[in-house]
Design a protein around this nucleic acid. Structure first.
Length: 252
DNA sequence: AAGAAGACCAACCGCAGCTGA
DNA sequence: TTCAGCTGCGGTTGGTCTTCT
């Protein structure tokens, strides 16, 4: 079985696009619109595979692309969105008009990652690097204890062992210190009846305290609004842990 | 001035998800 | 329900440019 190759490699060009190829592609798409990438190269008289044409168009030739440096506002937005969405570059790009996923991905890897690291923030988790270190230490201690329950540990009190609260409840967000005891199964006994995404680092919020409600979708705080400013989510969690769908209230 | 190292970014590759037969 | 075809996504590569020594 197996999948047929997306194109006949022997008869396709690879590498950098020439001006003539660009012009052919632009002219074809202007005349016929986007889509049907597999048949496009032949129809447009290009010796390229459909994938390559699509990529070239989306990342470079599209007329609505914004070229040039990223602004500070874009930087901030990318960081915030990445803290929520992770490496979902296409979703992040959808929030930045004129920017492509590839462009944002490259920009992240070359600029923002370094910028965050120089600020002491782990770009992968958005946690302060210091807390990351502590968390790793605790994981190690917990793992050891799990493996050898008899040696109930000398490695300090429960409080001393506790570090980053991996899953904070909404009302806990914003407090200076949150100690969670690893011996308690908070996941089971205390967490709200929904799946929370990983916590967001306080450092990324302009006002890292008191938030009345938060978006269930991306977990950013929502102020004076019935929907999330970032993802447009309508389901908001309240500090009590209750769930409220503002949209359904509005429409009913 | 020249070579090395690092930074940047366009393009490629492989995989996953969706769709229709 | 299964499977092939297609598209889109994210990770990676490699060529070019810039900066450093």
């Amino acid at each position: 079985m197996g999948r047929s190759p997306c194109c006949e490699k022997a008869h396709t060009n690879k590498g950098a696009w020439t001006k003539e190829e660009d012009e052919r592609l632009i002219a074809y798409i202007k005349a016929h619109g986007e889509g049907c990438w597999r048949s496009l190269p032949k129809a447009a008289g290009l010796l390229r595979c459909g994938k390559s044409c699509r990529l070239r168009w989306i990342n470079y030739l599209r007329p609505d692309l914004k070229r040039g440096n990223f602004t500070e506002e874009e930087d901030e937005l990318i960081i915030k969105l990445h803290s929520v969405l992770g490496n979902k570059w296409s979703l992040i790009a959808a929030r930045l008009p004129g920017r492509t996923d590839n462009e944002i991905k490259n920009y992240w890897n070359t600029h923002i990652r370094r910028k965050l690291m120089s600020c002491g923030i782990d770009p992968a988790t958005h946690l302060p690097l210091q807390e990351q270190k502590m968390k790793m230490t605790i994981s190690f201690v917990e793992g050891r204890e799990e493996g050898d329950k008899s040696s109930s540990s000398s490695s300090g009190s429960c409080e001393e062992m506790c570090v980053w609260p991996a899953r904070r409840r909404p009302e806990e967000v914003g407090e200076q210190k949150q100690w969670i005891c690893p011996d308690l199964n908070l996941e089971l006994c205390m967490s709200p009846p929904f799946q929370l995404p990983p916590p967001l680092p306080q450092v990324l919020f302009e006002e890292p305290v008191k938030r009345e409600s938060f978006c269930f979708n991306c977990r950013l705080g929502v102020k004076n609004s019935s929907e999330c400013n970032y993802c447009g989510g309508g389901f908001l969690g309240l500090s009590s842990g209750a769930v409220l769908d503002y949209r359904s209230l509005e429409t009913s």
